[in-house]
Design a protein around this nucleic acid. Structure first.
Length: 571
RNA sequence: CGGGACGUAGCGCAGCUUGGUAGCGCACCUGAUUUGGGAUCAGGUGGUCGCAGGUUCAAAUCCUGUCGUCCCGACCA
């Protein structure tokens, strides 16, 4: 490729709309252009990298027994109505009508379609397992698209669906995918961790998210400083720890606590630590007010709470809703409450002589004990959000906090969709059984953005060799020097003939412009050809990742490059 | 969906308070000089100021509406 003809318009200034580094660099390097909110054109450089990531994905999927196919993006409403998701999915589902006003949607995911095919074409256990995948544009009408490719409304995704005859088969598929994903993200050069993730309505253990570590990531995770335990903070789980253990139950005393509406206020006034306080919160779960109890120094994981309650919509109850129930925000407590369900985190029953609100303005109670029967709990569940600094549940290490970009997710669906969409097969005993399914996604564009997010400096992108749009750029330093132009041209031709992915920067620009663009675009290897060096028979190689500069004999540069690319595993 | 901000040339911005010929930097085009880290000089192209109404002799500027975009939050197969 000649730079003079390359469609990669670089920008000196950062477009105002780009907030995070990967988005800024993709805009500046001419990789990406926005067409509408959350809708982007992948310019040639970006598309080359996308294709490389997709090729890595294909190799690993195929190695794990996958077969690639292509499902339609345009999907009839009937299938979604059958699975129940036409109504459940909400505004995010991109609905369209055809000329006869029939309902369709643009696929945000493809469980319905793939299961439809299974229903039609798979009859026998002899045809299992099946692992089918595709790489395709997905559509989700996100409420808030953001950060360039991180959360788009139209985006490239690899999705695989596995069909096994039983749970054991699913486990095999799942482990194959776990390993394949690890290989893929490793090959892409990402610093990532697989973390245990929420399984939502489907429940059970059976989901991992692959998180590229980055401060700009949208998800919070905890991971152990000693072992390989890692989990989303929303679902990380630790054994319950009570407070006041061993103390004798004391008599309940009402304490006047004016203007103390936070746990901290109350704990300070009473001279206790917040772990001796029970925090009482009220949520509206599918419209029903529920009281939730948790240790005062803990945070509620709304994901856990939602799963425990089995509700679809969960939000903090409004002050009006509380007053309607005869409660006073800031002075909530469980004692004497009869008109709503009470759910408690598993630590609460272990708390002795704790404090809580008195359900009267400006009053709290001390020495309250669930174990003594002071109040009622209808449901006990693990509800707390784990925080960095807490002990690892698997070893004696300590949990650290980090943020991550979710680049992939693997999920055990089990029989949710096979039952809803009638994906049954006949086993060797002649019995009909639902296929046991798994689904496995990778955001291709997000992976590309995550690589940039992790690998850049003040000058631009630093591509790992495996996903660089080109491997080598040749920069002739002076376009008036004919010997130099000729040397650059002939090296370019030799490398092309050797099928090296090379760009010749033949633009009539000053060297500084070429160097800056090379750094910005992030070519791993830059060959600089200058008059002085050429007179001595040498050219210069700059390694983008390390900044290292090498002088190589002109006659040896081609072999040196081929050798280097071979060692990097891209030949 | 709640909160905040912004729409003026391809990009970054000023002008708006106080209405009166639409500006600056970068990029782009031409010429000359220049050539190892975003050159210099001279000349030039490009904008119905997001859109629609309204007020006014006169609107980028004031008013109303609308569309778009970004950020925070909520939400997230």
């Amino acid at each position: 490729m000649r730079a003079s003809n390359m469609y990669a318009p670089t920008l000196r200034e950062v477009p105002a709309e780009a907030e995070i580094i990967s988005h800024q660099l993709m805009m500046r390097s001419g990789m990406l252009r926005k067409v509408a909110s959350g809708v982007y054109t992948y310019m040639p450089l970006a598309w080359r990298t996308m294709k490389k990531i997709m090729e890595i994905i294909r190799q690993e999927m195929d190695a794990a027994g996958g077969q690639e196919l292509l499902l339609p993006a345009m999907q009839p409403a009937e299938l979604w109505q059958q699975s129940g998701r036409w109504d459940v999915y909400g505004a995010e589902l991109w609905r369209v009508k055809d000329r006869n006003m029939r309902d369709f949607c643009l696929g945000p995911t493809h469980e319905e379609i793939i299961t439809y095919h299974f229903h039609n074409d798979i009859r026998s256990y002899k045809q299992l397992p099946q692992r089918l995948y595709q790489i395709q544009t997905k559509f989700r009408d996100e409420r808030r698209p953001r950060f360039g490719l991180m959360r788009g409304r139209e985006f490239m995704m690899k999705d695989m669906y596995s069909f096994d005859r039983d749970e054991a088969g699913l486990e095999v598929s799942y482990q194959l995918m776990h390993r394949a994903y690890t290989n893929i993200f490793t090959r892409c050069g990402l610093n990532f961790r697989p973390v245990e993730a929420d399984t939502g309505a489907i429940g059970g253990s059976g989901s991992h998210e692959f998180m590229a570590l980055a401060d700009t990531g949208e998800s919070a995770i905890v991971y152990c400083d000693k072992c390989n335990y890692a989990a989303s903070v929303e679902i990380a789980s630790l054994p319950p720890v009570g407070t006041g253990a061993g103390e004798e139950f004391k008599e309940i005393v009402k304490v006047y606590t004016p203007d103390c509406t936070t746990i901290e206020d109350v704990a300070n006034l009473l001279g206790v630590t917040s772990e001796r306080v029970v925090k009482t919160l009220c949520f509206s779960a599918d419209g029903e007010v529920v009281m939730v109890l948790i240790r005062g120094d803990r945070r509620i994981s709304e994901v856990k709470l939602q799963n425990a309650l089995g509700c679809n919509e969960l939000e903090m109850a409004s002050d009006e809703a509380l007053r309607a129930k005869g409660l006073f925000p800031g002075y909530l407590g469980p004692i004497g409450v009869t008109n709503m369900k009470i759910v408690a985190d598993s630590e609460v029953p272990l708390m002795v002589n704790h404090e809580c609100g008195a359900n009267e303005v400006s009053n709290h109670l001390i020495n309250v004990n669930y174990q003594r029967g002071d109040y009622r709990i209808d449901q006990v569940a693990d509800l707390r959000e784990v925080a960095p600094g807490e002990p690892c549940p698997h070893c004696d290490g300590t949990l650290l906090g980090a943020r991550g970009i979710e680049v992939g997710q693997i999920f055990k669906l089990r029989d949710k969709y096979s039952k809803a969409l009638d994906a049954y097969f006949t086993d060797e005993n002649g019995e009909d059984k639902p296929a046991i399914m798994g689904c496995y996604g990778i955001g291709v564009g997000r992976t590309m953005a995550a690589v940039i997010e992790q690998s850049n400096d003040e000058y631009g992108i630093i591509w790992p060799m495996a996903v660089a749009p080109y491997h080598v750029v040749i920069v002739p330093v002076n376009d008036k020097d004919e010997a130099l132009t000729e040397a650059a041209e002939s090296l370019y031709q030799e490398l092309l003939a050797a099928r090296v992915e090379v760009v010749l920067d033949d633009r009539k620009e000053r060297p500084g412009v070429k160097f800056n663009d090379a750094d910005l675009i992030g070519y791993p290897l830059r060959v600089t050809i200058g008059s002085k060096g050429l007179a001595k028979g040498i050219v210069e190689v700059k390694i983008r990742a390390t900044g290292e500069v090498l002088e190589i004999a002109k006659d040896e540069i081609k072999d040196w490059l081929l050798q280097t690319l071979r060692e990097a595993g891209v030949r």
